Amino acid sequence: MKIVLIGTTANCVVGFRADMIKSLHQQGHTVYALALNYDATTRAQVKALGATPVDYRFSRTGLNPIRDIIDTIALSKLLKKLNPDLVFSYFSKPCIFGTLAASLAGVKKRYAMLEGLGYLFTEKPEGVSLKVKLLKKIQIALYRFAFPKLDALIVLNPDDRRDLMEKSGVKVKKVHVLGGIGLNLADYPFSAPPVDPVSFIFIARLLVEKGVYEYVSAAKKVKQRYPDVQFYMLGAVDTHNPGSLTEQHLAQLIKDDVINYPGHVNDVPSWIAKASVFVLPSYREGLPRSTQEAMAMGRAVLSSDVPGCRETVVQGVNGFLVERWSSDALVEKMISFIENPQKIIDMGQASYQIAQDNFDAEKVNSRLLEILDLR
């Protein structure tokens, strides 16, 4: 069978679709991986996985409807030339316009996966702007137009399904809740969490909606009472995003010994191994990969009671869900871990078991291929 995967960047193909491509290739399917910015390195990596890299053009974030229509027609012509039996799109824009292009090209089987609903569906303590409300209405209208043309839509958590189908009135023949997109668990081996001193780690882009400001605020408060406690932070400053922690703010936090920030790291597991507890006070997620990685290595989780994060924590068993947007709620649970280090060990063990049962890439890909009717 000929299968086309439509995504965004080449790095996302390599980073998030590698196991799927390998599985499809091993089954004897011909796979074309469409991306926007291949270079010699990513092209070679995709070929090594068993797929053919194919360039296509699309504006990832642009709001020009004429440009989007022209690009959709061009994509449909490319799909006609490739003549696939099945198209699988992932991420918001490819899910909309990849599905429409596949329909125009007469592709028989059409599937899409949303790994989260993104910032347009994310509530914030100060409310959302008129611009965001308008963009959300446009996105929902496009989902309503494109998604009835799908054989099935895949989401990662039940809140996303409810918010799309029930609250937004999007119609799809079938919706499947996949859970985590899976990890190669061998890359994230169990390690005993250190408890003397206790340490916390935050891994995400340093954006307001990831809860970076709540994490920093909690770190300052905890440090006043327990100065030996360490707070690690991995993630990039986004200078183009007004909601990002600034480089100046970050430099001050490092200077004041509030945060331990190593900059860009290639070996995330070694940093998780240094930490006692994983913290993600995000405002909304699909099902966060960083949390899955920490759980696989046996870390207790402290996260927000919001869509996507809820699916990673069994309250009081492998960690705690706390009130969203609240640094005080984080402080309370952090102190609970500091004063009861046995919780770190017991909850870390529970996280490890949950990860083994639910986040194994082999099991997840098997389920995904079943949904795509490729088993």
Rank of each mutant, 00 (worst) to 15 (best):
M1L: 10
K2E: 09
K2M: 01
V4A: 15
L5W: 03
L5K: 08
G7C: 04
D19V: 08
H29N: 15
V31S: 04
A35N: 04
D39R: 12
A40R: 08
R43A: 11
V46I: 14
Y56P: 12
R57D: 11
F58P: 01
S59T: 13
I66N: 04
S76A: 15
S76L: 06
K77F: 04
L79E: 09
F88S: 07
A102F: 03
L104N: 02
A105Y: 01
K108H: 12
K109E: 13
R110V: 12
E115H: 06
L117V: 10
G118W: 01
Y119Q: 13
Y119F: 15
E123W: 03
E126Q: 15
G127H: 03
L130Y: 02
K133A: 14
K137F: 03
I140Y: 05
I140K: 08
Y143S: 11
L150H: 02
D151R: 01
L153P: 06
R161A: 15
E166L: 07
V175R: 00
H176Y: 15
L178C: 13
N184T: 15
A186V: 09
D187F: 00
F190C: 06
V195Y: 01
D196H: 14
P197W: 02
V198M: 01
I201F: 07
Y213P: 05
A218W: 02
K223S: 14
D228W: 00
D228A: 14
F231T: 09
M233I: 15
L234K: 04
G235T: 00
D238R: 06
T239F: 05
H240I: 05
S244Q: 05
L245F: 06
L250A: 12
D256V: 12
D256H: 12
Y261V: 11
H264D: 02
W271S: 09
A275Y: 05
S276C: 06
M295P: 10
V301L: 03
V306H: 07
G308F: 02
C309L: 00
V313G: 09
Q315F: 00
G319F: 02
F320H: 12
L321C: 07
L321W: 01
L321G: 02
L321E: 03
D328S: 15
D328T: 13
L330I: 05
V331A: 06
E332V: 13
I338Y: 04
E339N: 14
P341C: 08
K343I: 05
M347A: 10
A350W: 00
S351R: 02
Y352M: 06
A355G: 12
N365M: 12
S366P: 11
I371V: 14
L372S: 09
L372T: 09
D373P: 00
